[in-house]
Simulated scan of single mutants.
Amino acid sequence: MDFGCDPGEWTDAWSATGISHHWALGTGHRLADLRAVADLLGVEVTDVRP
């Protein structure tokens, strides 16, 4: 992945935007569970596929 800069600098800049500092990553077979939990918590799930 090309961040266009040092990944650490990118992470610092991204975090400074105020977006949640918690990241979650899961494999596809857990997507339904993650969506259910996100719905209960009122948070967004982003499905990223190649």
Score class of each variant (00 low, 15 high):
residue 31 L to M: 01
residue 27 T to V: 15
residue 25 L to V: 13
residue 34 L to Q: 15
residue 50 P to I: 14
residue 25 L to N: 15
residue 31 L to F: 12
residue 47 D to T: 03
residue 40 L to F: 07
residue 33 D to N: 03
residue 30 R to L: 11
residue 47 D to I: 06
residue 30 R to N: 07
residue 36 A to P: 15
residue 7 P to K: 07
residue 4 G to D: 14
residue 3 F to T: 05
residue 43 V to M: 08
residue 29 H to N: 15
residue 3 F to Y: 03
residue 16 A to P: 11
residue 7 P to G: 02
residue 43 V to G: 09
residue 1 M to F: 15
residue 6 D to T: 02
residue 11 T to A: 12
residue 3 F to W: 01
residue 37 V to N: 14
residue 45 V to I: 04
residue 20 S to C: 06
residue 37 V to D: 12
residue 48 V to Q: 13
residue 44 E to R: 15
residue 21 H to W: 09
residue 48 V to S: 11
residue 32 A to K: 04
residue 22 H to E: 11
residue 32 A to Y: 01
residue 3 F to A: 02
residue 50 P to W: 05
residue 27 T to L: 10
residue 12 D to E: 09
residue 46 T to M: 00
residue 6 D to S: 04
residue 1 M to K: 15
residue 29 H to I: 05
residue 31 L to P: 00
residue 9 E to C: 10
residue 27 T to D: 14
residue 8 G to N: 11
residue 40 L to I: 02
residue 36 A to K: 01
residue 47 D to M: 07
residue 36 A to V: 02
residue 45 V to S: 00
residue 2 D to C: 14
residue 41 L to H: 01
residue 34 L to F: 06
residue 2 D to S: 09
residue 6 D to Y: 10
residue 48 V to T: 09
residue 14 W to Q: 04
residue 21 H to P: 12
residue 38 A to Y: 12
residue 24 A to N: 02
residue 6 D to Q: 06
residue 11 T to E: 13
residue 10 W to M: 13
residue 1 M to Q: 03
residue 10 W to E: 14
residue 5 C to E: 08
residue 35 R to H: 05
residue 32 A to D: 08
residue 29 H to W: 15
residue 24 A to Q: 06
residue 41 L to I: 00
residue 10 W to P: 10
residue 45 V to M: 00
residue 35 R to Y: 02
residue 47 D to R: 07
residue 36 A to G: 12
residue 31 L to Q: 03
residue 19 I to F: 04
residue 25 L to Y: 09
residue 43 V to C: 14
residue 18 G to R: 00
residue 16 A to N: 09
residue 4 G to M: 03
residue 31 L to H: 03
residue 5 C to G: 10
residue 25 L to D: 03
residue 7 P to R: 08
residue 19 I to W: 11
residue 4 G to I: 04
residue 41 L to S: 06
residue 43 V to F: 07
residue 42 G to N: 09
residue 31 L to T: 01
residue 3 F to M: 05
residue 44 E to W: 05
residue 14 W to C: 02
residue 30 R to W: 05
residue 17 T to A: 08
residue 35 R to C: 08
residue 35 R to P: 12
residue 33 D to C: 08
residue 33 D to R: 03
residue 39 D to P: 14
residue 31 L to I: 10
residue 6 D to A: 03
residue 5 C to A: 02
residue 15 S to G: 01
residue 4 G to Q: 01
residue 18 G to I: 00
residue 29 H to E: 06
residue 4 G to F: 04
residue 13 A to K: 13
residue 35 R to N: 10
residue 15 S to V: 00
residue 24 A to R: 05
residue 32 A to L: 06
residue 2 D to W: 04
residue 19 I to L: 10
residue 46 T to A: 01
residue 5 C to H: 00
residue 48 V to N: 02
residue 23 W to C: 09
residue 29 H to C: 13
residue 14 W to T: 01
